[in-house]
Nucleic acid binder design. Structure first.
Lengths: 339, 339
DNA sequence: TTGTAGGCGTTATCAA
DNA sequence: TTGATAACGCCTACAA
C-alpha cells in the first residue's frame, strides 16, 4: 500500500528543502517559476494533500464542528443536522456527529473526546439524563477552555451560552387553540416527565391556552409517558378513565401511538378524538389518518445554530453576551384534526 | 477564558522538565513517588487532558472511524450507526459521522476531508449518485493510502474490500414466497431504479420466487419509483392499470405510501391488497395497518462492519484477502399481510 | 531564490 | 531519578 505523501517526501525526491516545497505549493512569489512548476507537477502526480492533523496542531483550530445529539433515530434531530451541514459546509467547516443516546455519561465522554483537539466548538441538544440530573459541569469546562457552545432544542438556563429554540410555548398554545376553535371540549395533554425543557414549555402553552379560553385545567387530563418505554398500556388506561375529544401530544411518536390506541378502541380520528403532535416527520405524514403537527423547522434551527457558532469562532473579540434565538413554529394541519 | 493546559505549562509551573511531567502522568517507575504525586495532583487540579491532535500526529493514528452514509433521515442507517457506535466505543474508537446526501461530490469531499488525518478507516454505504455513475476512484485512492474501508448495504463489486450486506435476494425471495403461500395471485414489485445494488438483488429474489412457484414474471408488475420524488401519482396509476392482490416494496416508505394509496382507492389492506416492505422501522410499526417488513438488522450490520474495520486496523500483517459478510434477514409479520 | 530554525503537544530514547 | 533531544507534518520569520 502506498503511504500518504508528505512535504518531506517531495523535498527529498526533488532535492530541495521542505520550506521550498511548502512555498511552491502555495504558489509563493518567492520561488522561481521553474521550481514551482516542477514541485507542483510532482505533488499533483503523487496526489499530495496537506495533513489536517498537522495543520490543526499548528493552527490550533480544526475547522470541525462537533454536534452531539441525544438520539440519531429521530427525524427532528436528523433534520437539524442537515441544516448544520448545509450551513457549515458552505463556510468551510466539517461536521462531526456524536450520539449521546440520552445518557449523561456518554454525553460527557463524547464531549471530552471531541474537545481534546477534534473540534473548535459544539452544537448540542442535552440528553434526557443530563436534563434530569441537572449536571452541566462538562458544558462549563468546555466553555472555560475557550470552545464556544450552542445549545438547541433541549437547553438549560443554567448555562450561559448561545441557544436556538422554537417557541415551544407558543406552538403548544396555537395547537391547543386550534382544538378549542374546532369545538373540542375536553382536551388532554400527552407529555413526558417534565425535566425535559421542551415538555414543560409545551405544557405551559397548553395550560395558558385553556385558561385564556375559560377551559378548566385539570391534572387528570395530563398524562406523563415514559420517553423510552413504548408500552401503550398507560394510553389505553387513560382513554378508559377519561372521556376526551382531543389530545395534544408533545412529540410525534406519542401522537402516532395515540392514533393507534384510539382506533383499536373502535373510535375514529378525528371524528371522536382529534390529535395533534409535535415534529413534522415522516410518521406524521404517512400515518393513517395523517397527523396534524407543530413543525419545529429543524433545518432552520440547524442552520441558525451553525451560524451562531461559526460567527463566534471567527469573531475577534470575545464578547460575553450570548443570544437566544427563538424560531417560530408552524401548525401543519392534516387529517387527525377537523379542518 | 482559561486556555487548555499542556505538559509545558505544568512543567514550567512545577519547575521540572516536560518529559518528567509526561512520565509522571503515565505513572512511570522512573519518577520518584514525591514528584509523581506532586505532578499528578497539579494535573488533576487543572484538569489536564492530553491533546488528541498531538497524539494523532505522533502516533500516526487517530482512533477515529469515519462513517459516511447517504442520508441521515433514515431509520436503517441510523440503526447501523448505533451498532457501529456500540462496538467501536467498546474498543476505544470514536465514531465520526458524515452525510453524503446521496451526492457523489459530497461523498468525495467528505472522504477526502476525513482521509486527511481525521480517521484511520472508513465504514460507508454508497450514495445513489455514486452507484449510478459507477465512479469509485475516491474509494481506491483512500485504500491506496492504506486506509481500510468496509462497505455496507450499498456495495459494489468494483471495489475489493471488506463488505457487510444482508441476503437481499433471499429476503425478497422469502417475502414473495410468503405472499404466494398466502394465496396471492398477482404480486407486484415496487422498486427503485436498478442502479441501486440492493434493489436489483431484491428484484432477483422476487423474480426467482415467482419462477420457482410457477408464477409468471411480468415487467408490467414491476413499478420503478423515484427515490427522491415523493409523488404518489405513479402508484395510483399503477393500481388503476394493474389488478394486483399483493405488492413487495423494496423499502419502507414505498410500503407506507402504497398502503395509503390503496386505502384512498377504497380498498382494504390486507384483504384486498397485501403489502410487504423492507426495513423494520417506526413507520412500519406505527402505520395503520402496520406493515409486514423484512428486517435488515441494521444494528448487527453496524457492529459487524465496525469489527471488520477495527480488526483490520489493528492487525499486523496486511492481508489482502477481503471478506463479504452476509447477514440473514428476517420477515416481521404484521397487519399488512394475512397471517 | 532558497534554506534554516523554531514551534504546535506529545512521547521515546538516551544522556546526565 | 530527571532532563535534553528528536520526531510526527506543517508553516513562517528570518538568514543566506
Amino acid at each position: 500500500m502506498k503511504k500518504k505523501i508528505t512535504l518531506k517526501h517531495i523535498a527529498r525526491e526533488l532535492e530541495v528543502s521542505i520550506s521550498t516545497v511548502s512555498k511552491a505549493l502555495k504558489d509563493s512569489a518567492e520561488i522561481s517559476k521553474d521550481t514551482k512548476e516542477k514541485i507542483q507537477a510532482f505533488a499533483k502526480l503523487y496526489n499530495y494533500r496537506p495533513n489536517n492533523i498537522a495543520l490543526s496542531l499548528k493552527n490550533r483550530r480544526t475547522k470541525n464542528i462537533g454536534v452531539i445529539i441525544p438520539e440519531i433515530v429521530h427525524h427532528f434531530f436528523a433534520t437539524v443536522i442537515r441544516g448544520i451541514e448545509k450551513y457549515a459546509n458552505n463556510r468551510g467547516y466539517n461536521v462531526i456527529i456524536c450520539v449521546s443516546n440520552e445518557s449523561f455519561d456518554k454525553e460527557v465522554i463524547n464531549m471530552e473526546m471531541l474537545a481534546n483537539g477534534s473540534t473548535d466548538g459544539f452544537i448540542m441538544a442535552l440528553s434526557a439524563e443530563t436534563e434530569f440530573k441537572e449536571d452541566f459541569n462538562h458544558l462549563r469546562e468546555v466553555m472555560e477552555q475557550g470552545m464556544p457552545l450552542v445549545l438547541f432544542d433541549r437547553v438549560t438556563n443554567e448555562i450561559d451560552c448561545d441557544k436556538v429554540v422554537i417557541d415551544d410555548r407558543e406552538g403548544a398554545y396555537s395547537a391547543t387553540k386550534k382544538l378549542i376553535n374546532n369545538g373540542n371540549k375536553r382536551i388532554a395533554l400527552f407529555t413526558t416527565e417534565n425535566f425535559f425543557s421542551v415538555s414543560s414549555e409545551r405544557e405551559e402553552g397548553y395550560k395558558q391556552a385553556l385558561l385564556d379560553h375559560n377551559y378548566e385545567v385539570s391534572e387528570n387530563l395530563i398524562l406523563k409517558l415514559d420517553y423510552i418505554d413504548m408500552d401503550n398500556k398507560p394510553i389505553e388506561d387513560f382513554f378508559d378513565r377519561e372521556k376526551v375529544d382531543a389530545v395534544l401530544c408533545v412529540n410525534e411518536t406519542f401522537g402516532i401511538r395515540a392514533i393507534r390506541v384510539v382506533q383499536e378502541m373502535g373510535l375514529k380520528v378525528p371524528e371522536d378524538v382529534s390529535l395533534i403532535g409535535f415534529t413534522n416527520g415522516f410518521l406524521s405524514k404517512y400515518s393513517y389518518p395523517s397527523l396534524t403537527t407543530v413543525d419545529q423547522h429543524g433545518g432552520d434551527m440547524g442552520e441558525k445554530a451553525a451560524q451562531m457558532l461559526i460567527d463566534r469562532l471567527e469573531s475577534e473579540d470575545e464578547n460575553e453576551i450570548y443570544e437566544t434565538k427563538v424560531l417560530k413554529s408552524t401548525l401543519i394541519e392534516r387529517e387527525s384534526t377537523i379542518n
